[in-house]
Amino acid sequence: MVATEHETQTSPNADSASPLVDKSGSRVQEMFRQIAPRYDAMNHLLSLSIDRYWRWRTVRILRLSASDPVLDTCTGTGDLAIAIAKKAPKNVRVVGSDFCPAMLEIAIKKRRVGTPSETIEFIEADSQSLPFSDNRFQCVTVAFGLRNVTDTDQGLREMTRVCTPGGQVVVLEFSQPRLFGLRQAYGFYFRNVLPRIGQLFARNDKSAYSYLPESVVQFPDGQALADRMTAAGLTDVKFTPMTFGVATIYQGRKPQSTDASASETTP
């Protein structure tokens, strides 16, 4: 959910006649501050709780070892970080970072004594400038937050930078169905139904649930996002659409140092 500057680049998915969505840091941070108390309830309601399944699928593909820590960026209220902690081997440190204090306050309250969530460390941080050293986390994840980062490529570069060589970078994000008919119905729901329901329950004055469909439409998905992950330095990038393409899991591997050396010597 991180953004620090206004978006100035046209997305491959954007309608050239449509104004770019405002992802300035102050706007996004204030928007999420206002909807934080109802954020989880609204997500489950508007997705018919399918978002729980999407996170479960995401955690399943993580190859977690009893070694380096794990980072969940744009962690929001911490659901993915908590799910990762449940799967991670004992004593593996899980960190959740976000730039919205109001969301982190809720994430912290979700930690439960005597459960794997007890030891999760939630910190305030900008995903475009993560406060971690290089090659630190065996897996770096983000769920439904990358599209809110002003500079998508910088966000991906930072995720790659802090990932250990051979480690995973995994993105769970909304996408647009390709099936004719479903795509149109999905678009109608996203643009007309969701904002009205969201506004009724969230009662914020920043039109958070109008921002959601705008940000999804203007965000690259499918091969376009996979190509940007490759450009950020990841290899073996692949993606798996879920629920008819409403959401997609992307995964890539940070090359081992030997991989990089080999590529440099290959004619």
Rank of each mutant, 00 (worst) to 15 (best):
V2K: 10
E5K: 15
H6P: 11
E7Y: 01
T10W: 06
I35R: 03
H44T: 06
L48Q: 02
S49R: 13
R52G: 03
W54R: 10
T58K: 06
T58E: 06
V59S: 05
R63T: 11
D68Q: 15
L71K: 10
T73V: 14
L80K: 07
A81T: 09
A83R: 12
I84V: 15
I84L: 03
V92Q: 07
V95W: 04
D98I: 14
A102L: 00
M103I: 01
K109N: 04
R111W: 01
S117H: 08
D126W: 08
D126T: 08
S127I: 02
S129R: 15
G145M: 04
R147Y: 11
D151R: 14
L156K: 01
E158L: 11
Q168P: 06
Q168R: 11
V170Y: 09
V170A: 09
R183P: 01
Q184K: 14
R196F: 11
G198H: 04
R203K: 14
L212H: 10
L212Y: 09
V216R: 06
Q218K: 10
Q218H: 08
D221A: 14
A226R: 12
D227F: 01
A232L: 08
V237R: 10
P241K: 09
V246I: 15
A247E: 03
P255Q: 05
Q256A: 12
S257P: 00
S257K: 13
S263M: 13
